[in-house]
Amino acid sequence: MKLTNECILCILNQTLNVCKTLNIDEDKTKEVLDEIASFVKEMKFDQTPPYVASFVYQKISKILNIEDLYSTQKELAIIKAKTLFEYTKDIVQNANDKLLFAIKASIAGNVLDLATPTNFCLDEEISKIFSNNFEIDNHEELKNDILIAKKIVYLADNAGENIFDNILLKTIKSINPTCKIFYATRSKPIINDITYHEALKCGHEEFAEVVDSGVDSPGFIFEKSTDKFLKLFEDCDFVISKGMGNFETLESYKDKKIYFLFKVKCNIVATHINKNVGDIICMKNI
């Protein structure tokens, strides 16, 4: 997906939200907004929103002298997710189609996103997601691929959301105990995405090997990754891509081995896939 004028407005709103969240004073906030406004007006529309956002957040961090802008919010999101984890896990374990429910559980956590214009409540999402249908549903194809896979790359997304990923990781291993799963994180703090060192504290290694993708953007970008991870990406049987950011950067990469799992949270993505804000998606790339 490519940058639009609406994306630029969203990035400016995100910039303001960062300053509000961190209680930055008015003068400093104006300095940040002026700097980001000058930067984004030079951006070209052949770039993806996450690519632009990676540089925007680097600039915000530099101006405010704060490396991890949302460190507190990430910690709180993980704590919140853990309070709902056992309840959600029990629902999945008692379901007839455990994979279907595990996918939905992992997508429920996708509402913990500080970079989208639409706000959702995690408690409400958990309470209703299991009765909602996928608006794009390729979960049977995903199940068939899991059954025969030897290596799976799982592109992680947000902090807090990652806790619910453990339910899906466990379910995948129950379907195919011998498959190797690589849980790939961001290399550095970017918005509220989960980083390598944060993921190591969240129990993923019971089901997968946590790996650093080398990427410091809120969406997987090949040019920002490492040779080691790119080889892993190339050699795996298929990729599970979580979240809108990863979708925005990878949907143009026409590789059928990528599955996108996310909740639609902005009008640009909704229009692009001809769905509505709030829809849940389990989509094989074509």
Rank of each mutant, 00 (worst) to 15 (best):
G243E: 02
L261F: 08
A115T: 12
S213L: 02
K128S: 04
S131G: 12
G219I: 07
T29C: 08
F233L: 03
K150Q: 09
D237R: 12
D145E: 12
I148A: 06
K256S: 15
K228N: 15
K20C: 01
F262V: 04
D157N: 04
I136Y: 02
E135Q: 12
H197E: 13
F164I: 02
I280Y: 01
N110W: 10
F238A: 11
I268G: 05
S71F: 04
K228Y: 14
L232D: 12
E234N: 08
K201E: 13
I103A: 10
E6F: 06
C7W: 15
S38Y: 14
I152V: 08
T116Y: 11
E223M: 12
T116V: 10
Y87T: 11
Q58R: 14
G219V: 11
K89M: 05
E67S: 05
F222D: 12
D235Y: 07
V239I: 13
V211P: 05
T29I: 03
F207D: 13
I221K: 00
S187R: 14
L16E: 14
G109P: 06
L122Q: 00
A102E: 05
L122N: 02
F45A: 10
I268T: 06
S106L: 15
D235E: 10
P50M: 13
L169S: 07
I107D: 00
L84F: 08
D216S: 10
T4H: 09
E234Q: 15
T83F: 05
I268A: 09
E223F: 03
S252H: 15
I146S: 15
S38M: 05
N65S: 09
L64W: 08
N144Q: 15
K20V: 01
S127G: 03
I146R: 04
F247Q: 08
T116F: 02
T195L: 04
K228F: 12
L261R: 06
F134H: 04
L155V: 04
Q58C: 10
K41G: 09
I221L: 15
K224C: 15
N144D: 13
T171W: 04
A149W: 03
S241P: 14
